[in-house]
Design a protein around this nucleic acid. Structure first.
Lengths: 123, 123
DNA sequence: CTGAATCCCTGCCGATACTG
DNA sequence: CAGTATCGGCAGGGATTCAG
């Protein structure tokens, strides 16, 4: 059990942590770390695809036809750097790469669910 | 009970909804609605301040000193449009405005918590 | 097949200055 | 006190092209 509810008696809905008091945008703030991982057009859709199972580069292109090579590469690199996805090059020819969510990446599922719930509830 | 768990038997972590199958970024996707509401530098910090209680314009400026007038105005307008905050003009002089989270806006607390948890757990 | 490099264009962000 | 107007810089995103 690595996350969920640190206990925040006096602050409804906000963690009881010094970083919760930052007075300006701070890349080390957990909230910003997560938003940075999700940042950019297409990012959440790529994650959604990978939540459904491992995918190759071409699988992703086929699932998201309007997504350009450049942006797909960018997103996969960004997500790899954030520790969300892992690349595995498969031996043989033609060259193939398999993209998998890391354990950390799979942890985004409840985050996306929370985003979905609020957006669906709202307004 | 307006949101939370539609029931998604076959899709771990993802809602069972046709919109979950969109093949390109779609502003009506709940996830994107939420991300749009949170988009932009300073946005989450403004929300955090308001989660702690109602604030006036100057209160917010004092709490976030590095935030410029223009951006604060932009954020408050954006959040008002998203139905997250409500403005109340107080009568009398000098002019005062009180910013309050709507019920919908208060619902962002668990979302921010989820973002915090993942960012704090990770990497 | 799987990417990375380039070019261009748009939109966001901040600083400054000004109004009711 | 509570904003709005304008300007400039810079980063994000798409189309195309090139490489391993």
């Amino acid at each position: 059990m690595t996350h969920q509810t640190v206990g925040h008696p006096a602050r409804p809905g906000l963690p009881d942590d010094p970083l919760a008091d930052v007075t300006e945008p701070d890349p080390s703030c957990p909230v910003e770390i997560t938003l940075a991982a999700l940042r950019g057009r297409w990012t959440t859709l790529v994650i959604r695809e990978l939540l459904r199972g491992d995918r190759g580069y071409t699988d992703l292109r086929r699932a998201l036809p309007a997504l350009s090579d450049k942006v797909l590469s960018e997103r996969l690199a960004q997500l790899a750097q954030a520790g969300v996805v892992e690349r595995r090059r498969l031996p043989g020819w033609p060259p193939r790469t398999c993209y998998t969510l890391t354990a950390h990446g799979r942890g985004l599922a409840p985050v996306l669910q929370a985003l979905w719930d609020w957006g669906a509830a709202g307004e």
